[in-house]
Design a protein around this nucleic acid. Structure first.
Lengths: 207, 207
DNA sequence: TGTGGTCGATACGTTACCGTTCCAACCATA
DNA sequence: TATGGTTGGAACGGTAACGTATCGACCACA
């Protein structure tokens, strides 16, 4: 069907100018996210993306078979940086470290705009839903470590409600920054850590 | 400029078929939100909205001067139902009632899809930001009542960190339902209420 | 050093939506 | 009951993005 010539007889490998430029591929992804942040996912125009990347539309359609596939490929490049958190000696310190890192992420104006869009789109398209659960899983693991350490230290009951705990850790800060659009100070973060630790302790006691 | 004839000489008030049909206006709003939920805010087409409402485009442009104004008017119809919560006798019961009501709201598939879109758009356009803060304020007042009652009962320190408390109440449930896409059971809601109460208590103690 | 073959950019036809204009339908008023 | 005047719907040009086809430019290989 496609690439008929090379299927019939591939004399030699592509070389020279006939090889895809990885830097342009990256520029296309970057432009895609910039457009996303500015206009919203549903309004992304591949023509503007190409122009912003300093390329033509063919540069996109040679790499991806459709608008949709390009979008999927672009979002798939996210969520790979999942560096683990250091041990800070106590649950409260670990929680504060977790919140501090989350604040760094949510401070990026682009991420702040794209994240809620992902959640909205997750209800509409399957690949976006997959991406969302994948990102959630990565975040989950990071938080699991915090809980496991606390249990090992004896600060938390092993029978702690993990699902609830994994909600309690990121939710208040996400709410404040993404939903309300604010940015808490370091002191407010510390107060939040104290409250979250209390909530975590309470969610292990049987009622 | 416009409506010259009636300015020059208004013989009699509009009547008969010459009066706007309120039911169609409502149908247009409804269609707007259905389109929003299906396609995303940025991809709303007024042509499809009109078609879905069983009307022509002129029905929209007679009522609103532009696409943008229509959107603003539509979103302004939200957030007017702010019925106050009954007193359930204890902070924990009040929190549970608050969560139960929030769960009802977030169960609507349309609201679940539209809310994150609003947060994303709030970072892009001023009127959407206004809407968001307005909705936030209504929610705030509802939660304030819960806190005030608890303080009156002696369950909470009057010096409680209100900003933090107002984040702690809705955030975990919002996270679970909108970000993760799940729906907690009544039992999970009760456990969450316990955890939140513990967090609220902790956020009033001085450190 | 010649060259094969893919690359990126431009131009093109198609589709969809915007916002406007026009006209028949409609019904409470007088 | 006749009618005035606005309504809703359909048709119209204009714009923008999609996805495809074509072209010269390019450069590692042989």
């Amino acid at each position: 069907m496609e690439h008929n010539r090379s299927v019939v007889k591939s004399r030699r490998k592509p070389s020279g100018a006939a090889v895809q430029r990885a830097d342009l591929t990256e520029a296309l992804y970057r432009a895609f996210f910039e457009e996303w942040a500015e206009r919203g996912f549903a309004a992304i125009s591949l023509e503007r993306v190409a122009a912003r990347a300093g390329a033509g539309k063919a540069a996109i359609y040679r790499r991806f078979s459709s608008h949709h596939e390009f979008a999927v490929a672009a979002v798939s490049t996210i969520g790979l940086t999942i560096a683990m958190l250091d041990d800070h000696g106590s649950l409260e310190a670990d929680v504060l470290a977790f919140l501090t890192r989350l604040r760094v992420v949510l401070r990026h104006p682009m991420i702040r705009r794209i994240l809620p869009d992902i959640h909205a789109e997750a209800a509409r398209s399957a690949p976006m839903r997959d991406l969302n659960t994948q990102v959630a899983k990565a975040r989950r693991e990071q938080a699991q470590v915090v809980l496991d350490r606390a249990i090992a230290r004896g600060e938390l009951d092993p029978a702690v409600d993990r699902d609830l705990a994994l909600d309690l850790l990121p939710a208040p800060l996400y709410w404040r920054m993404v939903v309300l659009g604010g940015t808490p100070t370091r002191g407010q973060l510390a107060a939040e850590a104290v409250a979250i630790v209390a909530a975590l302790r309470a969610s292990s006691r049987r009622c």
